[in-house]
Amino acid sequence: MDITILYYLVPSLIMFCCGVYGFITRRNMIAMLISLELMLNAVDINFVVFNRFLYPENMEGMFFTLFAIAIAAAETALAIAIIINVFRSAKNISVSDLSKMKH
């Protein structure tokens, strides 16, 4: 059996959609952050697979992935810090309680 490009692209697309679904339905901010990580990792898979299968002559996609991973780590660190701050002042990290500012 040949492993073609589709065997990678379809799972990564499913991962991305799971991430979007989780981001929209989950109410806990940590769970939302995990969903965001899913989305970002799906993107990384995409870049690597396109590079490996379609354009193996240069490494552009691989390098982009390396940078994307680093950026995702920075984003997560900052988001966790902010969520901790929210928890300190509200004693809760559910987004349904983040609705003090209406009007």
Binding site: M39, L40, F50
Partner: peptide, 27 residues
């Protein structure tokens, strides 16, 4: 804090969507 939480979550979401688009452009 509430504003920052909303900002960072939407910012990361939007950059994930943007990166997905860029991966298709690269492909």
């Amino acid at each position: 804090h509430e504003a920052a939480a909303k900002y960072i979550l939407t910012a990361v979401f939007s950059s994930a969507v943007l990166l997905m688009g860029l991966s298709f452009v690269y492909g």
